[in-house]
Write a protein that binds this DNA or RNA. Structure first.
Length: 581
DNA sequence: AGCAGAGGGATTTTT
DNA sequence: TCCCTCTGCT
């Protein structure tokens, strides 16, 4: 099959078929990054004859891993043993298990880790209200070592936490990376794939970068794909600088830039690149309409306008007339093609209310952690304890469980050993029955889906998280989500709400990263892009009047129409009650 | 142990 | 503003 037959442009084709050592693909928004990645995996296996299981592709979320795996297997046409596609953590865990066997510890999820940190804090005399900050600090110390500002209490807490983990034979998420790296460095030949590909490289942090270096095959077959302008996870240690490090540490690396964008029309692209002060990308979608930015006096009016506008767009009556640019128009794909993006999830509240008031189906992506359900949480603990009957962390889990269920420990042990022969779905159902647990309907459904996709899951929490994707991309509903959550997604119609100074950019956050975040938001839209702000917004009980985001000043006039908020003369008289005297 | 009231903190998020 | 912790009281 030729590149043209696959629908690849010249640069994409070069990236897919590159055969000379390390490759760095710099791929702007909508330039076909995922196509390149999947086709390149296919190329390595099919055309170069590399055994599929010796190809390792790393993504940042399980969701992305599943998507890419699905696309590769479509290309390969049902190969028996596919390439390994997963997150750093998933790969590290299986690597550790493969190499350590019985000595592998039991991985715990974030909830469990926090519980252990709070115990360590207790020992160290740190007030529990600082749990969040301390948990973050502990993670930072583990990944990057202590820094001079770290107090004695914090350091003590850290070692107490490490002690708890080791005493109980447990690993937290960070340990997976740390231990895998240690093992790789002890024995550099071990576990190296024949080809390594890393997606979203702008999101790697230091340890992940080190892992890439350590895993990189001696064949030099390393591909990293990323976009420094979309690096928005600095708060957890990611930095676009690692793209530069890659070029330095792999000096023979070829750099290919994908510059043709197939998603955003030129105007949106130009606006976005101006915000981050980058060089332009060329759109293959024509000039497109201007961005409409509009101010409102308060978030409720802002939300009401967005809802009204969505109604109009889905009704479709006036759609043709609105689409004034060179963009080919046609019916929108309905509500699933519409997204409202914002800086913080709290802002979804007002929007959601306005949509409900108009009867517009919508889904919020900031789903609650399903583990907040007590019964599911307990089921998860039991699951882990049963699975741990074969590994190391058993005593600890039994003790905890016994505590939690107020059962004597021996009795709990008996219950668990009764369940020990079971696995998968059957084990789960048995746990529900034995502990008299009942789950909300949406979790039941999620679990059903999860077991279908993964009948013998490695870890319970990953199973739940995969199953509980309450945000279903194809669903016939408008999407409400943070700009972070929108990364990697695309919608015909995008609203970016709350574009106010202090919100976007947020407080004292790194302005550069805030600009990149806005860039990500702006480049999600393929047809219509609206920006809104509110003159007054109540935050934590305080009325903030940040005014329109300074970022809008960087968008040249020809690309955007800005409509100031109309002051509302009509002051609503205070009304005690509808049926009052 | 359990509750009432004070007080402080309140992004973004994956594994 | 609202929610979670901590404290002190019963």
């Amino acid at each position: 099959m030729s590149g043209a037959e696959k629908g690849l442009n010249a640069a994409q084709l070069r990236a897919v078929t590159h055969d000379q050592g390390p490759l760095l693909v710099v791929a702007g928004p909508g330039t076909g990054k995922t196509r390149v990645l999947t086709h390149r995996i296919f190329h390595i296996i099919q055309d170069r004859g590399v055994a599929p299981e010796r190809v390792l592709a790393i993504t940042f979320t399980n969701q992305a891993a599943r998507e890419i795996a699905a696309r590769v297997s479509t290309l390969l046409g049902q190969k028996v043993h596919g390439p390994v596609i997963g997150t750093f953590h998933a790969w590290a865990l299986s690597f550790l298990r493969r190499n350590l066997g019985e000595a592998a510890r039991l991985p715990i999820d974030e909830r469990e880790a926090s519980a252990l940190v709070s115990r360590a804090m207790d020992e160290a005399g740190i007030p529990l209200k600082d749990l969040r900050a301390t948990r973050e600090a502990v993670s930072r110390i583990k990944l990057a070592g202590p820094c001079p500002e770290d107090g004695d209490r914090l350091l003590f807490c850290f070692s107490a936490y490490q002690g708890l983990l080791s005493r109980h034979g447990l690993w937290d998420f960070d340990d997976l990376l740390v231990e895998a790296l240690r093992l790789l460095r002890e024995d550099p030949g071990r576990g190296r794939p024949h080809a390594l590909l890393v997606d979203e490289f702008q999101d790697v942090n230091r340890i992940q970068y080190e892992l890439v270096r350590a895993i990189a095959p001696s064949t030099g077959e390393v591909t990293v794909i990323g976009d420094p302008h979309q690096s928005i996870y600095g708060f957890r240690g990611a930095s676009p600088e690692f793209l530069g490090c890659f070029a330095r540490d792999f000096p023979q690396a070829t750099v290919i830039r994908l510059k043709t964008a197939y998603r955003s029309p030129q105007r949106f692209l130009d606006a976005a690149t101006r915000v981050i002060g980058a060089e332009g990308l060329a759109s293959a979608r024509g000039e497109g309409p201007r961005i409409l930015a509009r101010g409102f006096s308060c978030p409720e009016e802002e939300a009401a306008w967005i809802a009204r506008r969505v109604d109009e767009l889905v009704g479709g009556v006036s759609f043709e007339s609105l689409n004034s640019g060179g963009c080919r128009s046609g019916p929108l794909q309905g509500l699933s093609g519409i997204a409202v993006l914002y800086r913080i999830n709290a802002m979804g509240e007002a929007i959601s209310r306005a949509f409900s008031a108009r009867g517009i189906p919508h889904q919020r992506a900031d789903r609650k952690d399903p583990f907040e359900d007590r019964d599911l949480c307990l089921a998860g603990r039991v699951w882990d304890a049963v699975r741990a009957m074969h590994t190391g962390g058993r005593c600890y889990l039994v003790t905890r469980l016994a505590e939690e269920c107020s059962l004597p420990e021996p009795e709990m042990e008996k219950v668990l050993s009764d369940l020990a022969g079971l696995s998968g779905r059957i084990l789960f159902d048995a746990i529900l029955a034995r502990f008299f647990l009942s789950l909300p309907l949406f979790i039941q459904k999620a679990m059903e889906k999860a077991f279908e996709a993964d009948p013998e899951p490695v870890s319970f929490s990953s199973l739940v998280r995969e199953g509980a994707d309450l945000f279903v991309p194809g669903m016939e509903a408008a999407g409400l989500m943070s700009m972070h959550a929108a990364k990697g997604l695309e919608f015909p119609v995008v609203f970016i709400a709350g574009c106010e100074n202090g919100v976007l950019p947020w407080g004292d956050s790194d302005p550069g990263e805030e600009r990149r975040l806005f860039y990500v938001g702006l480049t999600r839209a393929s047809r219509i892009l609206h920006i809104t702000w509110a003159e007054r917004r109540i935050f934590h009980g305080r009325t903030e009047r940040g005014g329109r985001s300074p970022f809008l000043r960087d968008i040249p006039e020809g690309l955007i129409t800005i409509e100031e908020a109309r002051p509302r003369p009509r002051r609503r008289p205070r009304q005690k009650g509808l049926f009052g005297p």
